[in-house]
């Protein structure tokens, strides 16, 4: 039944997926096993997104299914799901910009590929990034921006991080439709990513050889 659950989620059969999850949980199956299957399904969804057979409707519906099943499972859980992590990423859309569709995809794919992602949301001021970097101690920072007015805040954010003495231990990647090599140089980031897969590749490269975090 767990494999049918995986197929249902990955195949966008929401009703079936939810009723299967309910049956499994009520039948006494370990909620951690159910969530593990959800994670496997998300990996398949992520792959299909990378292969361009899935797009936003599928990513968003899968996200909804995952959330609904997590909610069903939570009250039955005695301990949290332990996942081995490749590394930590703090991400957000910079100040003055509220576009978040692309950033959310990046977040989701990084998560599927084993990163612990702390998403600060949209219209994030530099200080909030600094606070999060201090609290989370990520290896990687991701900044997203879709507006030309956000080029300047992107640069200011990176400057503020440098002034706070946090730049050296951090790799910074930026992205969003208008971002290119020109804006990477302008902002002082380490790399830019034209799509979410590049974000994953960059992050993997930067954390290669790191021991996985418990």
């Amino acid at each position: 039944m767990l494999s049918e659950l995986i197929d249902s989620i990955a195949g966008m059969k929401e009703e079936r997926a939810l009723s299967l999850a309910r049956e499994l949980l009520e039948g006494g199956v370990d909620p951690l096993k159910v969530l593990e299957s959800c994670r496997e399904a998300m990996t398949i969804v992520g792959q299909r997104f990378e292969e361009c057979t899935y797009y936003l409707p599928e990513l968003m519906l899968a996200g909804e299914m995952l959330q609904e099943i997590s909610q069903m499972a939570k009250p039955r859980m005695t301990k949290g799901l332990e996942v081995r992590r490749r590394g930590r990423v703090v991400i957000g859309t910079v100040q003055g910009d509220i576009h978040d569709i692309g950033k959310n995809i990046v977040t989701m794919l990084l998560d599927v590929h084993g990163f612990e992602v702390h998403d600060l949301g949209v219209d994030v001021p530099p200080q909030k990034f600094i606070d999060a970097i201090k609290a989370v101690q990520p290896e990687i920072l991701g900044l997203s921006a879709l507006l030309t007015v956000a080029f300047e805040p992107m640069k200011r954010t990176i400057q503020a991080i440098t002034e706070a003495g946090l730049r050296d231990s951090l790799k910074i990647m930026i992205g969003g439709a208008p971002i290119d090599e020109r804006i990477r140089q302008y902002s002082g980031a380490d790399a830019y990513g034209a799509d979410a897969m590049v974000a994953v590749e960059l992050s993997k490269g930067w954390t290669e050889g790191h021991k996985t975090l418990a």
Binding site: M12, E14, L56, P57, M60, L61, E64, I101
Partner: peptide, 11 residues
Amino acid sequence: GTRGIMVDIYR
């Protein structure tokens, strides 16, 4: 909203 209309395509 984006999420709303995208999942409506399926739901």
